[in-house]
Design a protein around this nucleic acid. Structure first.
Lengths: 125, 125
DNA sequence: ATCAGTGATATAGTTAGATAGTACACTAGT
DNA sequence: ACTAGTGTACTATCTAACTATATCACTGAT
């Protein structure tokens, strides 16, 4: 995983883990990597890994059992809701930014229609 | 202007100023606010304001004349290019994130088609 | 009882971002 | 010459994020 400049790493990892849940790569009730393994996988300190699970547990996405591990929440419905929520956030942010740049809805739809997979752009300052 | 948690303030201000250039609110050659005024307007320290102009100048979006002020670049073409570049970044990021969540192009177009102005969503962890 | 794997906690140190305050140097207008 | 407005520079301080390292406590299996 490559990290964005600016946004704190632990937030980026949380986002990545939430995506895995939404995509079903982490199933409800399934055991998540130990904090030590998470630290290795994401090349992060154990304290940071612990923070990631602490914050995710507080948000309800997982629960921990001391001495056993951290597990994906068993609230089956949560993840479909989360998927819609994340999509909604992406959409509104995207639309606001595009409108702010002066694009209209039709412009945006046109751009997406002609959008090709391999388009890449620089990330200038 | 309200600031995002996470992303450094100076990057958010730079983004805002770039948008103003793209939208024509800051015209080529026009004098930009003094670093002191910028600090006041964005409720930011003078050092941060100075950094904002320093980085923007390095990126070519403006130039400074000591004792006079900071001015929007006179490269007329730059800003239409910048507009396209920023739109391209927004689009690819958006598409990648949506695909990553499991949405297909048709799903995305449908969502945008039914998108209403006033949609709002929480910014959960 | 022991042990490996786990989460939880603690201390210390580094770095980047941001602030506060001050001072210096240049430019234009008077 | 003087002054106001400007960019530039410096020191000091603060906080959040992150790392390094180590220790403790709990759980399950042997």
């Amino acid at each position: 995983m490559e990290y964005n400049t600016g946004l704190p790493i632990y937030l980026q990892v949380i986002h990545e883990l939430k995506k895995r849940m939404v995509k079903g790569e982490l199933r409800p009730g399934e055991k998540m990597p130990s904090s030590r393994d998470l630290a290795v996988e994401f090349k992060v300190n154990q304290n940071t890994a612990a923070r990631i699970y602490r914050e995710m547990e507080q948000a309800g996405y997982c629960y921990t059992r001391r001495g056993i591990g951290t597990f994906v929440s068993e609230e089956e419905n949560m993840f479909e809701e989360l998927k819609q929520e994340m999509a909604g956030e992406l959409l509104t942010n995207f639309m606001h930014e595009m409108r702010d740049l002066g694009f209209k809805k039709e412009d945006i739809i046109t751009r997406i229609t002609v959008y090709k997979e391999d388009e890449e752009h620089d990330a200038g300052v």
